[in-house]
Design a protein around this nucleic acid. Structure first.
Lengths: 203, 203
DNA sequence: CCATCACTTGAACCATGGTTCAGATGATAA
DNA sequence: TTATCATCTGAACCATGGTTCAAGTGATGG
């Protein structure tokens, strides 16, 4: 062994590739993105990508996994804070839209699950469910604490997820509002709703 | 002219193709869907698809356009009813999730805009914006009428759109809830929110 | 009948783009 | 200096799948 197979160095290379891939995936969409284009963006040859990843699908899987772990870390951190559930929710929504929309590697990960190889899909879906459950747990504790209410917890979770995930389809960095303002607006709407009248069955 | 080029017949054929294409697009996603598979689903040859459509992209464009026109009709109908804005909103959400999730042709249209040919994209985007504006108009009139409130109209519209569009990612016909129940749940949450406490700046 | 033409067929064509691999590079230990 | 091995290169390979088109079918008007 003349040269070390430094795992840290490998990890670094993988993250660099991830960053470029993530950017191209975001701009072109997964299918339209080409391996050549990702390589070109980094100023390297295509072969390098295949030295660190088995396939394009593996690259996508790594991309999604990284993002989901980031999200899970974020929600865990929010959970263990002493803030009220409503404030925890705000922190989570901020973290979520930032994670999906910022330039950092791993964004856009949620979408495009269909394109994953079956082998990876199971693992990703498990992480995804874990994140959704965590999110639902925050709502649930809010209800238990008496400061939130909702008739259908899973539905509420998915509605929230939809609102957050959809932002990647329209939000642009050069738009009129920043990510935090966006997140705060979503939270405000989600918490207090659009109706002026008192809610009907407020038992 | 020995045989008539019956426009109605042509339209029928196009709609039949649309139905099959829409189904396959939904199951596999646009890129993974193959023209051969669409043809096979109908029990015809691939060539037939190209007799009625210029390309796969044109097929997608037709698919999206059909769905958007359906949505626009639906929202127009809701608008000219004498129901309260809140009830109009309910009707629209019901119509929207039904349109996106039911088996009828044209569903799943909103997503995959990236895959459109530039020529079609402009037309589709125009329809899309028109629909979003119509939706926003309903909210706006609700605010004007004093039964709705919202700090950021465009943001509210997009949040709602996100919640509705996201349903195609998780709702399944064999699940526990029907489409109308789903829609009603979304409306309830959107109108009255998740918070128990009085809203803060309720001027 | 026959000619015409809308409509349909499906095998063949071909561009795209993911993937491979034989060879170059260069750092390190001996 | 030299051998070795991780790392990287990029041209070539090849499967996939959108697209074409020459030929078939059958209804219709003459």
């Amino acid at each position: 062994m003349v040269q070390v197979m430094d795992p840290a160095r490998v990890q670094t290379r993988r993250m660099e590739i991830l960053a470029a891939a993530s950017a191209v995936f975001r701009e072109r969409g997964f299918h339209a993105a080409g391996m050549r284009e990702i390589a070109q963006r980094m100023g390297v040859a295509v072969g390098k990508l295949y030295y660190y990843f088995d396939s394009k699908e593996a690259l996508l899987a790594f991309c999604q996994e990284d993002c989901l772990r980031r999200l899970l870390d974020m929600v865990a951190q929010a959970e263990q804070s002493s803030a009220s559930p409503a404030l925890q929710l705000q922190a989570i929504v901020r973290g979520h839209v930032r994670c999906l929309n910022s330039e950092v590697p791993g964004s856009l990960a949620h979408l495009e699950v269909e394109s994953l190889a079956p082998a990876d899909r199971a693992r990703i879906m498990r992480l995804r469910r874990r994140y959704e459950r965590a999110l639902q747990g925050v709502l649930e504790r809010g209800v238990a604490a008496g400061c939130l209410r909702c008739a259908d917890l899973p539905l509420a979770t998915r509605t929230l997820l939809g609102a957050m995930n959809w932002t990647v389809k329209w939000w642009r960095p050069d738009g009129r509002m920043g990510l935090d303002a966006l997140a705060d607006g979503v939270v405000e709407q989600m918490l207090h709703g659009l109706a002026v009248s008192r809610r009907k069955g407020a038992h």
